[in-house]
Nucleic acid binder design. Structure first.
Lengths: 238, 238
DNA sequence: GAGTGGTCTAGACCACGCA
DNA sequence: GCGTGGTCTAGACCACTCT
């Protein structure tokens, strides 16, 4: 996967450092090079370097300590789904598999969709897909994605088995995720969810509804997610 | 409550704007003054103003749009507990009450505490308290707080009925919350939790364990929280 | 005292929205 | 074309940690 040359410099540095952390070049508890060293190494000024480090803090990879340095965080033991980075990148090196239950298809939006929709989005219909995510062979969460059917040529014929949705959007459509909001509930699994997640109906599952904003104005997409937290916790930083 | 004059300027501006939003000076969908206007009004430069706005984005009060401006977010309908701002400030103007179930008391740390503790923290013992939070008279979540018993004179004799923990730490001990991490599960309510939250045992509740870091190095505190999400969702931005 | 991150200034150029 | 936020430079001073 090729990076865009138009990627901002702070983002480029973020990706480099993140990769080094995930691959173990810097280990838990290590200090990253100081901000001034990073400036010199990559030919950037301090605000730019600091911007990159702030993103790493936000996504939970490091913490900073005045007078000391930037300290590498332990890789989370749970699923880092609460931050912006997307599901795939939040897992470190673990074995995440995706099974497509419903391939992307165009259908009308649900009448009572869980987020309010602008009229032009509602009219153009919805790209719908269902995916099951497995870690180490065990089903962990079930994800329904809803995208506005606007300017996404050939989207329904793409494969998502081995590719994250966020990457596909970035590489093929220059759509970057910039933020979003989410709501969480603890609910009882119904028959269908229980079957997907290999649980008993009535057992508690975590339900997440998210609206995900992008750099394309007016283009947000949505995800409804059911997670079996009996073995893996969800994880987040703040 | 008096603000410290030592508060950074970006933080001062953040508090001013946040207050205006929560009090309705700027309403949902309104544009904040542009960054350049804010610079002029408050005598700051753009990076400082941008820092303040970035914090508002992080805490879900505004979103920014290139070429347009900073747009005020709807005040969340759920409980904004997933961000750093602390429970109290995340609720807007709603009627949040706190009932102290166990007043702060010093006891040893649990042998199998949910986060690893440095030895000197473990030795000095733990300040323990239990609180029940009610919204509009209904119990919403039950919160156990664990603080290291280090340099917190007279802490156990303070009252927390009408005062947030974060404010107390800041005003009386100059301790600022800088970040933290959290884990989430959906679990079945046990007898005690169900009684506190006025639910049936076995109903799903959301369980949150958090480690909260501060500007005092080595000083983190902890919270274990059970939330009834049957009527109110938890809410967060990313 | 030397080095670190935290805050802040004073500019610059760009891409995007809106009219 | 103008104003907006997004990115970036090149400095400065401070508080803190470590030795």
């Amino acid at each position: 996967m090729k990076e865009h040359t138009s990627m901002p410099q702070y983002r480029r540095l973020y990706e480099i450092l993140r990769k080094h952390i995930v691959e173990g070049v810097y280990k838990e508890g290590d200090l990253l090079p100081s901000e001034n060293e990073l400036c010199a190494t990559y030919g950037l000024t301090r605000p730019t370097v600091r911007h990159a480090l702030d993103e790493l803090v936000k996504d939970g990879f490091i913490k900073k300590q005045k007078g000391k340095g930037s300290i590498v965080h332990p890789l989370p033991k749970g699923i880092g789904i609460l931050s912006i980075a997307g599901t795939t990148s939040a897992l470190g090196n673990r074995d995440l598999k995706t099974r497509i239950l419903v391939k992307p298809e165009i259908r009308p939006w649900d009448e009572s969709f869980f987020f309010p929709l602008p009229e032009h989005v509602r009219e153009s219909g919805c790209i719908y897909m269902e995916r099951l995510r497995l870690i180490d062979g065990k089903p962990l969460f079930f994800d329904i994605t809803y995208l506005p059917n606007i300017n996404l040529p050939r989207f329904t014929s793409r494969s998502f088995e081995n590719r994250s949705l966020f990457d596909t959007l970035r590489s093929n459509y220059q759509i970057e995720v910039t933020g979003g909001e989410q709501r969480l509930w603890a609910i009882e699994a119904d028959e269908q969810i229980a079957a997907f997640l290999q649980m008993q109906p009535g057992e508690p599952v975590l339900h997440l509804e998210r609206k995900i904003d992008t750099n394309r104005v007016g283009f947000s997409f949505f995800s409804s997610l059911y997670c079996n937290t009996s073995e893996q916790a969800l994880f987040g930083v703040f």
